[in-house]
Amino acid sequence: MSRVLEVRGLAKAFGGVRAVRGVDLDLQAGEMLALIGPNGAGKSTCFNLINGQLQPDNGSVRFLGRDVVGLPPRRIWRLGVGRTFQVAATFASMSARENVQMAFLSHHRRLRRLVGYAGDAYKQEACDLLERVEMRALADRAAGVLAYGDVKRLELAMALAHGPRLLLMDEPTAGMAPQERRSLMTLTSEIVRKEGIAVLFTEHDMDAVFSHADRIAVLDRGEKIADGRPEEVRRDSRVQASYLGSFGAQS
């Protein structure tokens, strides 16, 4: 298996507060790595450092061997990194299909065309992708009124339009009902395993983490305190203490 993502010594401070301190991560093709930790542990910061939204103070991020630190998110996307957002971000004034068509237009570098109708471009491809994420029936619904779970599927379809090698998913199942959660995660893992896409995701729902992640990395106050297969991490006493907290121990 080839190494898709290699993060070394990643560090970021916000005015005195060291949000992320020296985190290392590795990810192979077709592998799903869950990044977990209590609220405020630095997961989101870590995420945003990798996808280019924030610039690290220190450390390196290599994607397919190429250093991507300092590149804006759109350049990182061009290299083959797709993403879904914690608070799902789609183009609210467009239909689900048009959202996916946008992704294709960008993929084929047709964004600046002044002639022709965007609504006709890559229509079939977009419908096919929506089919794959089980959204075909909602293709003409405005993205702004889609249910939470459907928006996440839409984001997934938009990411797939570019044929990504790495998928970054920030809290993919936040705010979803358990059944929705399971089906989204099952769908995601089916697709990424088939395509050999590496996935890095943060997640609160331990169910989703333990049933789908190949590996789990645990952050606590900006540091990685564990990294391994699910059952190893589950037994780790440091993880127990930090993740569940003194209150969690009571319950």
């Binding site: 998110p73 996307w77 467009m94």
Partner: peptide, 22 residues
């Protein structure tokens, strides 16, 4: 209604998503 017009609307609707879509 052209691809360019859609791209503009994409940037208006969600600059964050537009950026993450290249």
């Amino acid at each position: 209604f052209s691809p360019f017009g859609y791209t503009l609307r994409a940037g208006r609707d969600s600059p964050l998503r537009a950026d993450a879509l290249g």
